[in-house]
C-alpha cells in the first residue's frame, strides 16, 4: 500500500513579466488502487501540478508538501522521485534524438532497480507490453519519440509505465489525440497495470470518454490552481453537460 499526499501545494513559474503563481493550495491524497480524475479548464494548472510533483526545474514550490508514504518528495531530485515510485506520463513527451527506445527503456529499468534486468525476461516483457499496446516491434529501434505521431507518443508513455512499475502514476491528458481504438488499447494498458500492481492513478483529462474505460473512484474539479470541488464519477458527467462556468464564476 502506498499513499501520495499533496498538502496545500503552491507553485510558481518565472515569466518575462515576473513571477506567476499557478498552484494556489492543492490538497489531494491518492492511495494504491485508487483512480482520481482531475478535470478543469485550460490553463488552470493541471500540468503544472503534474510537473511540480515530478520535480520539473521550471516550477518553484513556494508552499506546501508532497509526501509519498511519508517521505518528503520535494526534497528528492527528479530521478529520486522516480526511484521512490512516481511516474509522469507527459502531455507532450519529449524527443530524444539518437537514443533508441530499447536503450532508453533498459537504461531506465536498470536505474530504477539498481541492476540490469535479466536479459531474457526483459526482452519478453518489452515484447509483450508492446504487443498489448499494439506497438510495432520496429519502435524499439527508433529514437525516443522522434517522429512518433501524437497517439504513438502516448502509447509509448504507457509502455514505460507498464515496464517501470511505479507506485503512483500521473497521466497528463494521456487520452488526448487518441483515436477510439487507441483510447481503448491505452485504457486497457492502464487497467492491466492497476490490476497487476495496485497502481494509484491521477488521471488528468478533459473528456469523460476515457472514464468509461478507466473507472475513477474520485473526480476533482481543478480551477485556478486548486481543487474546487470533489465528487464521485457522476461529477464528471455533470461537468461534461454543464461545463466549468459554475466554478469559474466563483473563482
Amino acid at each position: 500500500m502506498s499513499t501520495l499526499e499533496i498538502k496545500n501545494l503552491h507553485a510558481s513559474v518565472e515569466t518575462p513579466e515576473g513571477t506567476k503563481q499557478i498552484l494556489k493550495g492543492v490538497d489531494l491524497t491518492i492511495r494504491s488502487g485508487e483512480t482520481h480524475a482531475i478535470m478543469g479548464p485550460n490553463g488552470s494548472g493541471k500540468s503544472t501540478l503534474a510537473y511540480s510533483i515530478a520535480g520539473h526545474p521550471k516550477y518553484t514550490i513556494t508552499e506546501g508538501e508532497v509526501l509519498l508514504d511519508g517521505e518528503d518528495v520535494l526534497e528528492m531530485s527528479v530521478d529520486e522521485r522516480a526511484k521512490a515510485g512516481l511516474f509522469l506520463a507527459m502531455q507532450y513527451p519529449v524527443e530524444v534524438p539518437g537514443v533508441s527506445v530499447s536503450n532508453f527503456l533498459r537504461t531506465a529499468k536498470t536505474a530504477l532497480d539498481g541492476e540490469a534486468p535479466k536479459l531474457r525476461t526483459w526482452v519478453k516483457d518489452v515484447k509483450s507490453s508492446m504487443e498489448n499496446l499494439r506497438m510495432d516491434p520496429s519502435f524499439a529501434e527508433r529514437n525516443v519519440n522522434e517522429g512518433f505521431s501524437g497517439g504513438e507518443k502516448k502509447r509509448h508513455e504507457i509502455l514505460q509505465m507498464e515496464l517501470l512499475q511505479p507506485k503512483v502514476a500521473i497521466l497528463d491528458e494521456t487520452d488526448s489525440g487518441l483515436d477510439v481504438d487507441a483510447l481503448r488499447i491505452v485504457s486497457e494498458g492502464v487497467n492491466r497495470v492497476k490490476e497487476d500492481t495496485g497502481l494509484g492513478v491521477m488521471l488528468i483529462t478533459h473528456y469523460t470518454r476515457i472514464l468509461r474505460y478507466i473507472k475513477p473512484d474520485f473526480v476533482h474539479v481543478f480551477v485556478d490552481g486548486r481543487v474546487a470541488e470533489e465528487g464521485g464519477p457522476e461529477l464528471a458527467e455533470r461537468l461534461e453537460a454543464e461545463g466549468y462556468d459554475r466554478f469559474l464564476a466563483s473563482a
Binding site: 526545474p57 531530485s77 530521478d79 513527451p93 519529449v94 537514443v99 532508453f104 531506465a108 536505474a111
Partner: peptide, 30 residues
C-alpha cells in the same frame, strides 16, 4: 543543453550523469 530532454530522462529514474551521457551520445550518434 536541452533541459526538457534531461527532465524526461531523469523522470524515468535515470541519473543526471547518465542522462547527460545519453543526450550527448545521441547528439553525435547519426
Amino acid at each position: 543543453f536541452d533541459d526538457e530532454q534531461m527532465f524526461y530522462l531523469r523522470s524515468r529514474g535515470i541519473s543526471e550523469e547518465k542522462a547527460r551521457k545519453l543526450v550527448v551520445r545521441g547528439f553525435f550518434a547519426d
